[in-house]
Simulated assay, not measured.
Amino acid sequence: MATPRFILDIREKAGDILLFLPGVVMVVFDARGRILLNRRVDSGRWALISGIPDPGEQPAEAAVREILEETGVSAVVERVLSVFTNEPVVYDNGDRAQYVDIVLRCRAVGGQARVNDDESLDVRWFAPDELPPLGPIARGRIELARRDDPTWFAPAPAPGLADPGYSVP
């Protein structure tokens, strides 16, 4: 996997401590309603297209850049689907990271789906009813993208409430 230069610079000083990092994850649709996926080099599994914004880069800019870099597809961002903090991950080299993913619904506007960098083994369009094996988080993000629901985020308890089971009627 291509680790961004700015993260390598941080790692030189910080070692393998847990880094809290932004991430963008894209659910990309084509005109036929198919979903763009890549089979990742690091895991060998099919996944939604994703990446890390560069310092100063807006999430939508990072999404458009990552989609093009990884798949050869030009896309536009349509809306924010969710904001989600993932569980921490530990990489093979011992580095630890935790990502806050901004999940975006995108629409392809050009290009041709192909392996376009060293992060993917395969890149393909899939009909929603013909998806390869995906984890529950990715499937949930795809389902959210197929609906017109408001942006999803994990709710926080109201301040000062002692009972976490309390709900407002």
Rank of each mutant, 00 (worst) to 15 (best):
A75S: 04
S82T: 09
Q112Y: 13
E78H: 11
V89R: 12
A75H: 00
A75M: 02
R114T: 00
Q98T: 13
N86E: 13
N116S: 10
L104W: 10
V77F: 07
E78L: 11
D92N: 10
N93A: 01
V89Q: 15
V83R: 03
N86T: 10
E87S: 05
E78R: 11
L104I: 13
A97N: 01
N116D: 01
V109H: 05
R107A: 14
G94K: 11
Y91H: 14
V109Q: 07
Y99N: 12
Q112S: 13
V90S: 13
A113I: 07
R79M: 06
V80C: 12
R96V: 00
G110P: 14
G94N: 06
D101L: 04
R79V: 03
V100Q: 13
V100S: 12
L104Y: 14
V103H: 06
Q98K: 10
N86A: 14
V83E: 15
V83I: 10
L104Q: 14
V115G: 04
D101Y: 14
A108D: 05
V77A: 09
V115P: 06
V80D: 14
N93E: 01
P88I: 03
S82R: 10
L81I: 12
R107K: 14
R105E: 15
G94M: 05
C106T: 04
R79Q: 09
Y99L: 15
N86K: 08
I102K: 02
Q112I: 09
T85Q: 03
V83S: 02
E87V: 04
C106R: 07
D101V: 06
N86M: 10
D92E: 14
G94H: 06
N116R: 15
A113T: 03
A97Q: 02
V83W: 04
N116Y: 05
P88G: 03
F84K: 03
Y91F: 15
Y91P: 05
V80Q: 11
A97F: 01
V100P: 01
Q98L: 08
Y91K: 15
R114D: 00
A113Q: 02
P88N: 07
D92V: 07
N93D: 02
D92W: 07
V109T: 15
V76D: 00
V83H: 03
A75F: 01
R107T: 12
A75P: 01
G94P: 03
L81Y: 10
F84D: 08
Y99C: 04
R107C: 09
V80A: 10
R96I: 00
V103W: 07
E78T: 07
G110M: 12
N93R: 12
V77N: 04
V83A: 02
F84M: 04
V115Q: 10
R79A: 06
V109K: 09
D101R: 09
D95W: 09
L104G: 10
R107I: 08
A113E: 00
V89A: 11
A113K: 14
C106P: 06
P88C: 04
A108C: 13
G110D: 08
Q98H: 09
E78Y: 06
S82L: 11
P88M: 08
R96F: 01
